[in-house]
């Protein structure tokens, strides 16, 4: 079974040279730490920066330089700043190659819910609805089950949707899965996790073809 860092490491393997990537808050943010050596990717933060770098050294924080999670950041060589409309033009116009975000639920058909729990939590969708409606390559990073052990991969989402039929891949502490026209296909299992463990933790019937390989992380 993977921890959050393991999930981030596995997703980092999906990066390709020359990709512009938007990372959501939480586990997705960690992916930036595991870009394969020698690979050039640029991280976009939807509040208006391309070429986002690591956190600043203590004492070098700048209130005018933050990411979409409102954390202080730095920029790398070749970075640029822009306004919010331009930022979402990059996203809507499909100039961003890969979007990685967290989710509360994902459905069999690739619907995603991650912005609202009626009566409990309403923080808003931020940029998530724009991202999932336009991005062609969306990977969800999340825990396979919720705090009380229920599957977060469902036949239908029970929470208000963020977007429909948009998720392409799901990476959890247990497995890598692909959303296909026929349902959710199991691609890889986490180290030490059996196919049976994954089936048990998943509400939907997974498509399983042949032997399912174990993930390679490093």
């Amino acid at each position: 079974m993977l921890d959050k860092i393991g999930i981030a490491k596995r997703i980092a393997k999906e990066l390709q040279d020359g990709f512009y990537v938007n990372l959501g808050i939480g586990i997705p943010t960690l992916v930036a730490n595991y870009v394969p050596q020698g690979m050039n990717v640029e991280f976009q933060s939807e509040n208006g920066v391309l070429g986002m770098g690591p956190f600043p050294f203590e004492g070098e924080e700048d209130a005018d330089l933050i990411n979409a999670g409102k954390q202080t950041i730095t920029t790398l060589k070749g970075a640029s700043f822009f306004d919010s409309a331009t930022s979402f033009g990059m996203i809507r116009g499909k100039h961003v190659d890969l979007t990685i975000l967290g989710a509360m639920e994902v459905s069999e058909s690739g619907d995603i819910a991650n912005w609202k729990i009626p009566g409990k939590m309403v923080k808003g969708m931020g940029g998530a609805m724009d991202l999932v409606a336009s991005a062609e390559n969306i990977i969800v990073a999340m825990m396979h089950v919720n705090k009380i052990g229920e599957s977060k991969i469902l036949k239908e989402c029970s929470l208000p949707l963020t977007g429909v039929k948009c998720v392409k891949k799901i990476v959890t502490e247990l497995a890598v899965m692909e959303v296909t026209d026929k349902g959710i296909k199991l691609l890889e299992r986490a180290p030490g996790v059996s196919v049976e463990d994954i089936i048990k933790a998943t509400e939907v019937t997974l498509l399983i073809e042949g032997d399912i390989p174990e993930m390679i992380l490093d």
């Binding site: 690591p54 956190f55 600043p56 050294f57 203590e58 004492g59 933050i66 409102k70 954390q71 202080t72």
Partner: peptide, 12 residues
């Protein structure tokens, strides 16, 4: 004041 909401830093 330019308050910072999430002060995130790394150490040298």
């Amino acid at each position: 004041e330019k308050r910072i909401e999430q002060r995130t830093v790394r150490t040298k």
